[in-house]
Design a protein around this nucleic acid. Structure first.
Length: 699
DNA sequence: CATACATGAATTTTT
DNA sequence: TTCATGTATG
C-alpha cells in the first residue's frame, strides 16, 4: 500500500462527510479510495447508523476481505462484524437465501460453478467438444449480464451462431429451473427480479440498508446497475439515493464482459442532486510516472475532468526498452530486476546504519496483455534463479478431476449438498441423464428436501421409469455404503486402500480414458488423482504433524479429513506470502501496486490488441488505452516499458511495431540503454535466427 | 488411411 | 499452459 498521510485531504474529507445524498467519488489510481470508503463507513456509524444498515459492495472476495480488515482497524471488531461488506454475488446469495422462494426458488437452491455450467450446456446443446460449449457459456453469460433472457436473445440474435446459442440458452434455463439451480449471473439477476416484482421484499431491502457504498463502480454491468438502483431507491424520497459510488472511468477495462461506463454517465442524469468528487492526489507514484499516465489517457474523450498529481518528487525517468524478440525482452526484464536489486543492495550496504531499503523480489512485477506471454518470462526467470509467481494460474484444486473427487467427498460429508450430488451422480456417467435429474429436482423442490433425500422417497416411483429409479437407488446405496466405510476407515494405509477401491468401483480411471481422447492427457489426469489420494491419505495417517508444530497428530478417518478439506484447501492456496516476482496480466493487476514494474510487449497488435478478423473501433481502442493507463499507474518508483522491434512468427522474424501508446506517453527522457554484453547476445541471437531459418538438408 | 507426435499460435476474468 | 493443425510413420 502506498503510504498516505495520517489525515484525509480536502477532497477525501468532502467525500467522507457527504452523508445524505448520492455521491460519486472519482478515485484516480492510488488516490486512497479504500481509505475513503472505510472512513466513510466509520462516519456513518458515528452518525448513528447500525453496522448492518451499511452495505459496502465489491467485485472480488479478496477486495471484500481487505475492506473488512481495513474497516476493523478503524471501527473495531464489534462493529465490523455486522457490517455488510460483500461482493455483488454474495449479497445476491444473501438476498436469495432469505427471499428466494418469492421468485420460485426452493429453500436450498444450488449454485453451479462455471465447470458445472459447462457440463449442463454441453449436455443441453449436444456438443461433443468443450470449445463450442465454452463459446455458448461465454455468449449466454454476456447476454445475462446485459439483462437478456433466451427469448430476448433469440429475437436479437445477429447470426446463426447466436441463434443456436439462444436455443441452447432456452434449454439451459429449463434445466436450471428443473435442477433448482442458479448460475453466478443469476445471483444478480434474480435478486433484481425479486426487488422489481415483489413489493414486500423491495421495501424490506430498501429500508434495511440506509447507505450503500460501491467499489470499482466503473466495472458494474447493466444488471448490477439496476440492482443498485433498486436497493437505493426508497418510497420516502428523502431517504432515496443514499449511496456512494467509488470508481474511475479511466480504469474501466471490463467492457468485454458487459461492464459499461454508461452507468457512470447516467448517474448525474438519474440523480440530479449527485455530488461528484474527484480524488486527484496520488499517493503511489512519482511525477515522472504520473505524467506518462496522464499523457496517455489524455487521448481518450473525458467523462469527467481529472488529472493525477503527486508530491513524491520527479523520480526516475520512465525507461523505454527496445528488444530484439521475445527472448531478448525476457532477458532484459531479468536484467532490469537484477540491476535494481544490485543498486538497492549496494545502497543498503553503504547506509546500513540508517536502515536503507533492501529491494525484494516481491517489489517487482512484470505485466503483459495475454497470459501466454508469461511463458518466456518464466523460463528466463527460472534460468536466472529468480523466484516468481504467475497469477491467475489454475490451482491444483481447480482441476476437473480433483473437483470431481472433492464433489464425492463433499457428498459423503453432507448428503444434502446438491451441487456435489449433481456432480457425483453424473461423474462418471451411470445412465442418469437430465430427464431423470430434472424429475428428481422438481420433486425435491416441491417437497423441500435435498436431491439425495428425494432419491429415497417412496412417492418418487410415480415420477419416473423403474429403470431410472433403479439407477438412482443404486447410486444412493453406493454413497451410503461408501459413507459408512469412510466413517470407519482410520489411518493412512487404510484410507489409501479405501479410496483406490472407491475409484475402481466407480470406474474413474476408465472414465478419464473415455472422456479424454488424448491418452497422455488422461494419464496426467490420473496422476493428479493419485497425488490427491496420497494427499488425503497423508492427512489420515497419524504421526508428526507436518506444520512444524512438532505435535503428534491422531490418526483420522477419511470422513474426518473430508470434512476439513475445504478449509485445508483455502489455507493451502493462501500460503503464498513469499518473496517472489509477480507475473500477471494487465487486467488482473488492477488495484495492485509494486515499486518496480515492467510493462512487456507494448506493441501494436498486442497492446492495443487487434485480432485479424476484427476491426478496431474507437470504443475498443479507448479501452485498450485505459489498460495501458492501468499498467503505468501500477508502478510506484520505476517503470520500464518494453517493446519488440522484431518478433518471431514461426520460423521467420517479422518486424514489430511499437505501440502508439508509447508515443502518447511523451517521454522526453527516453532511455534505450544497451549493455555491451547485451549487444553481444543480440548478435548471437541474430546468428541463431539465421541458423534456424536455414532449410534442413533433404532426406 | 489412421494415429502419434511435433510445432506453432494464443485476448482480457470474477463470481 | 492448452489447443489445433500438419507431418511422418505404421
Amino acid at each position: 500500500m502506498a503510504t498516505s498521510p495520517p489525515t484525509l485531504n480536502p477532497a477525501q474529507l468532502q467525500a467522507v462527510h457527504h452523508l445524505h445524498g448520492p455521491c460519486l467519488v472519482l478515485a484516480g489510481a492510488g488516490s486512497g479510495k479504500t481509505r475513503v470508503i472505510t472512513h466513510k463507513i466509520a462516519r456513518l456509524l458515528e452518525a448513528g447508523l447500525a453496522p448492518k444498515e451499511i452495505a459496502a459492495i465489491t467485485f472480488t472476495n479478496k477486495a471484500a476481505q481487505e475492506m473488512r480488515e481495513r474497516a476493523r482497524e478503524l471501527v473495531g471488531a464489534r462493529a465490523a462484524k455486522d457490517l455488510v461488506i460483500s461482493t455483488f454475488h454474495s449479497l445476491g446469495v444473501r438476498i436469495l437465501r432469505e427471499d428466494g422462494t418469492r421468485v420460485g426458488l426452493k429453500e436450498q437452491f444450488s449454485i453451479l460453478d462455471s465447470d458445472d455450467v459447462l457440463g449442463v450446456l454441453r449436455d443441453a446443446g449436444g456438443a461433443t467438444d468443450n470449445k463450442l460449449a465454452r463459446q455458448w457459456q461465454w455468449t449466454i453469460s454476456l447476454w445475462k449480464n446485459l439483462g437478456l433472457n433466451s427469448a430476448a436473445a433469440a429475437a436479437a440474435a445477429k447470426d446463426d451462431d447466436e441463434r443456436v446459442a439462444a436455443r441452447v440458452m432456452a434449454l439451459y434455463e429449463e434445466r436450471l429451473a428443473a435442477y433448482q439451480a442458479v448460475d453466478f449471473d443469476d445471483l444478480i439477476g434474480l435478486p433484481l427480479k425479486l426487488l422489481t416484482t415483489d413489493d414486500a421484499a423491495r421495501l424490506k431491502w430498501q429500508t434495511g440498508f440506509r447507505h450503500v457504498l460501491v467499489d470499482e463502480y466503473q466495472d458494474t454491468n447493466a444488471v448490477q446497475y439496476e440492482l443498485l438502483k433498486a436497493l437505493v431507491s426508497h418510497p420516502d424520497e428523502r431517504r432515496a439515493g443514499r449511496f456512494t459510488a467509488v470508481g474511475d472511468d479511466d480504469q474501466s477495462i471490463y467492457g468485454w464482459r458487459g461492464a459499461t461506463i454508461e452507468n457512470l454517465k447516467r448517474l448525474p442524469q438519474e440523480w440530479p442532486d449527485l455530488t461528484v468528487i474527484p480524488l486527484e492526489q496520488n499517493y503511489r507514484s512519482t511525477s515522472a510516472i504520473l505524467r506518462a499516465a496522464n499523457n496517455v489517457i489524455a487521448s481518450n474523450p473525458k467523462l469527467f475532468e481529472k488529472k493525477l498529481w503527486s508530491d513524491l518528487g520527479e523520480g526516475e525517468p520512465v525507461r523505454l526498452v527496445e528488444c530484439d524478440g521475445e527472448d531478448h525482452e525476457a532477458e532484459r526484464a531479468v536484467a532490469f530486476i537484477q540491476a535494481i536489486r544490485a543498486r538497492g543492495v549496494e545502497s543498503a550496504g553503504a547506509q546500513a546504519a540508517q536502515g536503507a531499503e533492501v529491494v525484494k523480489f516481491s517489489d517487482f512485477a512484470i505485466l503483459y496483455r495475454a497470459n501466454h506471454q508469461a511463458r518466456i518470462f518464466e523460463q528466463k526467470l527460472r534460468a536466472a534463479q529468480i523466484p516468481y509467481k504467475v497469477s491467475g494460474g489454475q490451482s491444483f484444486f481447480d482441476k476437473a478431476e480433483i473437483k470431481d473427487l472433492c464433489a464425492w467427498l463433499r457428498l459423503l460429508v453432507n448428503n444434502d449438498d446438491d451441487p456435489a450430488f449433481l456432480r457425483a451422480v453424473t461423474t462418471p456417467k451411470r445412465g442418469i441423464g437430465h430427464t431423470t435429474l430434472g424429475k428428481l429436482g422438481e420433486f425435491s423442490g416441491k417437497w423441500k428436501v435435498s436431491l439425495f433425500e428425494a432419491l429415497f422417497t417412496e412417492s418418487l416411483a410415480a415420477q419416473m421409469s423403474a429403470k431410472a429409479l433403479g439407477s438412482l437407488h443404486e447410486f444412493g446405496r453406493y454413497v451410503n455404503e461408501l459413507q459408512h466405510r469412510a466413517t470407519h476407515t482410520r489411518g493412512g494405509e487404510a484410507a489409501r486402500a479405501l479410496m483406490l477401491e472407491w475409484l475402481k468401483d466407480i470406474g474413474y480411471e476408465q472414465h478419464l480414458y473415455d472422456t479424454e481422447d488424448n491418452e497422455k492427457a488422461a494419464q496426467s489426469r490420473w496422476t493428479n488423482v493419485l497425488d490427491f489420494i496420497e494427499w488425503v491419505a497423508k492427512r489420515c495417517g497419524g504421526g508428526l504433524a507436518n506444520d512444524g508444530s512438532n505435535q503428534i497428530r491422531e490418526e483420522q478417518t477419511v470422513l474426518e479429513v473430508a470434512q476439513t478439506i475445504s478449509v485445508i484447501i483455502s489455507l493451502a492456496e493462501r500460503n503464498e506470502e513469499q518473496d517472489q516476482v509477480t507475473l500477471t496480466t494487465l487486467h488482473a493487476s488492477k488495484g495492485l501496486e509494486w515499486p518496480h514494474v515492467v510493462l512487456a510487449g507494448v506493441n501494436e497488435g498486442l497492446l492495443p490488441f487487434k485480432a485479424d478478423d476484427e476491426e478496431m473501433t474507437a470504443h475498443r481502442l479507448e479501452e485498450e488505452r485505459r489498460l495501458m493507463y492501468v499498467g503505468i499507474t501500477r508502478a510506484r518508483r520505476t517503470l520500464a516499458v518494453s517493446t519488440l522491434r522484431r518478433r518471431k512468427k514461426g520460423r521467420e522474424t517479422i518486424q514489430g511495431v511499437p505501440s502508439r501508446f508509447i508515443g502518447e506517453m511523451k517521454l522526453h527522457e527516453v532511455q534505450v540503454r544497451e549493455d555491451p554484453r547485451e549487444r553481444l547476445k543480440k548478435l548471437r541471437a541474430a546468428l541463431q535466427a539465421k541458423v534456424d531459418t536455414t532449410p534442413p538438408p533433404e532426406r
